[in-house]
Amino acid sequence: MRLKLALVAAVLALAACNMPADPPVVSAPVTDPYVTDAGGNAVYLGDVNKPGSRLPGDPAADTAPDAQFAAVGNTVYFAENEATLSDDARQTLTRQAAWLVQNAGATAMVEGHADEPGTREFNLALGARRATSVREYLVAKGVEAGRIQTVSFGKERPASICASEASCLARNRRAVTAVSQSQAGV
């Protein structure tokens, strides 16, 4: 969605440039915030002017895999009491899988989380179900099973503090993938 909007904005900007009354434009180097993944798809890495977004070849990219991975989208969200993946979640996970395939030295830990309703122990089990859903999808997309671990925090580590607003609770029903460089020989 964001991608489409960005394109529309770019088209409008180009149209504006062609207007005769336009003041002269100072030329500047163009940086492409998209990289190409293993499947030949464009991957948006975010605004390159913001910290955490890196261009390919940027030396910082090699030292901060987590920040680079976060730009891919490290979190997917779930419906109440569900562990099935939405279309949005599948798109995010496809990008995660592509990144993991490309970065063969990285391992992933998928953390499953639940919202406040439900008992503490049930939610611990539900978080594990969600984390496993994510793991199975990543494996189906070509990531070696041995590189992905899962853990559940149940409702113990909410992303947002909610009274009972549905939109807030939805932010807590999630699975977060964290990546790290695996140590040599492990």
Binding site: L124, A125, R129, T132, S133
Partner: peptide
Amino acid sequence: AMSFAPRYSPDGQWIAFSRETAGNT
């Protein structure tokens, strides 16, 4: 495997608990 929700049996000889493997508890 996650293991959680431990409870002693009344005679103290057993512990019932939840064990999760591959997402199933």
